[in-house]
Simulated scan of single mutants.
Amino acid sequence: MEAFLDYLLPFSIAVIMFGIGLGLTISDFKRVLVAPKAVVFGLFGQLIMMPLIGFGIAFAFDLDPIYQLGVVLIAACPGGTSSNIVTFMLKGRVALSVSMTAFNSFLIILTIPLILDLAFNLFWTSTKEISLSMLDTFKEVTFTVFLPVLVGLVVRHYYPNFVQKLRIPLRYILPGIMFLVFLLVLINEQGSGDKSVLEYWELLLPALCLNVLVMMVGFITSGFARIDHAGKYTIAIEMGLQNSALAIFLANNVIQIDGLSLIAVLYGGFSFFTTLIIGWLLKKYAQKREIISG
């Protein structure tokens, strides 16, 4: 199973990121130049605030170093296609969500190696030597994230009619691929460890705190930046739904430490539903405030 996952994970990530690329257009990037505030603030939230919150939670909870690294790892990953789906379901600013996903998917080739390097310097106290090359991490993220997104963007540009036919099926196919990845990793972790993944209840609280806290911080701080109500809960959704499949891939195929992917597996198992619920509550709160202020 483990050898199979070594090939399945990078392929699955590439397919998911290719699917994200198919949902992008050149205008998504031009939009930042026309109305950059919401996208720039959202990227600041994901690239700066989220990792800082991740480091804070890792310090605050009495966790083993491997799980502290896991918290930071999931916080360092970008939003995925699921955030676009939840934004669509809640009638948020889908273009903003897609633009944030697009830019973040490119920028993480620089940010993830830096964040992981800092996390290892802070948390990794084991005598086991881990060789984490920033250059190798950069290459892995480039080939599994950057290039698939770029190819998807090109295909969308030159074959828009074909891609239009795929849009509805992709809403189900891409989350389905993510679910398959979580399921296979879950089976593999249960087969290789002393305990079932479901027995790691102590990891659920820090993972849930990360999910809730980043959404609340994103929502509140974007209000200070005078971003509209729909933009506020869209940014919150984008920050709450990380690309857990990418975190699992980095943990198992790049860093290769047993147990590092557990946080990502747990986070991916509940975050879609909790983000949907919290996003709905934030939307209702935003609408009520809009009515009162109007």
Rank of each mutant, 00 (worst) to 15 (best):
I173M: 00
N211R: 08
A207M: 05
Q190W: 13
L203E: 08
K195I: 05
L183K: 03
L184V: 09
Y172H: 08
F224N: 04
L208N: 04
V217S: 11
I177V: 15
A225W: 12
S196E: 02
L213K: 01
I177C: 02
L205S: 02
L210S: 05
S196G: 08
L183Y: 13
C209T: 14
F219S: 07
G193W: 08
V217K: 03
G193S: 15
C209M: 15
T221I: 07
L205A: 09
L198S: 09
F179V: 15
G223S: 11
L174T: 09
F224H: 09
E202F: 03
I173T: 03
I220E: 00
S196Q: 05
G176D: 08
A225C: 13
M178I: 15
L186M: 08
D194Y: 04
L198W: 08
E199W: 01
L213T: 12
P175F: 10
V181P: 13
V181D: 10
L204D: 01
A207F: 04
V212H: 02
L183T: 14
N211D: 14
G191Q: 13
L213D: 00
F182M: 14
F219T: 07
F179A: 15
Y200A: 05
G223V: 04
P206C: 08
W201L: 12
G223N: 11
Y200G: 01
L183F: 15
S196R: 04
F179T: 13
L183H: 01
L184A: 14
N211G: 07
A207N: 05
A225Q: 10
R171S: 14
V214A: 06
E189D: 04
W201S: 08
G223C: 11
P206W: 09
E189Y: 12
L183M: 15
G218R: 09
A207P: 05
F224G: 05
V181K: 14
K195D: 11
L184I: 10
M216K: 02
L204K: 04
L180G: 11
K195Q: 10
P206T: 08
D194T: 12
L198R: 01
F179K: 05
